[in-house]
Amino acid sequence: MFTFCTDPASLPDWQWMACYLTTGKHMSLYWSVGTVLLLLAITAPTALLFGFGGASAARAGFAPLRWFGKTYIAIVRGVPDIAFFLFFVIALDQMFEYIRHRILCPDWTEAVRQGNDFVVCAAAKLPLGNAPQWVHEVYGFATAVLTFAIVFGAFAANVLYGAMRAVPSAQLETAAAYGMNQRQTFWRILVPQMWVYALPGLSNLWMVLIKATPLLFLLGVEDIVYWARELGGSKTPRFTDYPHGDWRMWYFLALLVFYLAFTKLSEVVLDRLMARLTHGQATAAGEAQRKAA
């Protein structure tokens, strides 16, 4: 990075540190912070979407759909997320490839499962065998997002389901009295009002989501924990220009500070959002706001 970095062993401390902290490996660590933030930014709305679908399904009039929604919520919530992560990504990947295989290679005669191997035709591979590396990375990232969204979607569904039931039934009855049909009641009355009831649960979920990101490396995404472990481990002079002892503690301390700061920031933002959403609502907090004004 800096011009004086050619011979790190002879540098004074601060210059050594400056060089050390700007090695290619450290750059990867800084990049991975961006990866984690990007993942959070994409996963949160996706999980909310899954949650909305799950909650709507769980209160659907059509019984099989209702069962599906409730089973989805119950199963995913009953299993530790880590167990899910350990096999779900591979399962998801194989499922996609299998579906593509059936569509793209109808005249393929060999078995897809050959012993332990999972073999699909070359055209069905995801990403294609000759795709450039960045496509593989984007695909790996996308499956990680999808896995996170499925797991956290179940939790979001749970929260939204509760919120939908918390909207006072008088509101829905009034809507019916005004001649709205079920669909109109759902979209015009229920959905706009449920958010204030859902927000405490959703903000809690957001906090959980933040704290689940150290498990990203299980999904094949090289996240901050991966790099902290890799960089912190002691290094012998033979394989690096920057030998050092076991520094994992310092790297993990940095991670700790990162997570605490991020949590604090989220708390502040969510509190403000809550104050805005409460405005004009028929809840205790809304009442308090009205009186204070």
Binding site: T23, K25, M27, G129, N130, H136, E230, F239, T240
Partner: peptide, 25 residues
């Protein structure tokens, strides 16, 4: 033969067999 690019998987944490150098490679 379906191997336009051969992808080699390694651990990257077992010197001297395989490890990540300072540049992260």
């Amino acid at each position: 033969d379906g191997h336009s690019t051969v992808r080699l998987g390694t651990e990257g944490a077992y010197p001297p067999y395989n490890f990540l150098n300072d540049a992260g490679e």
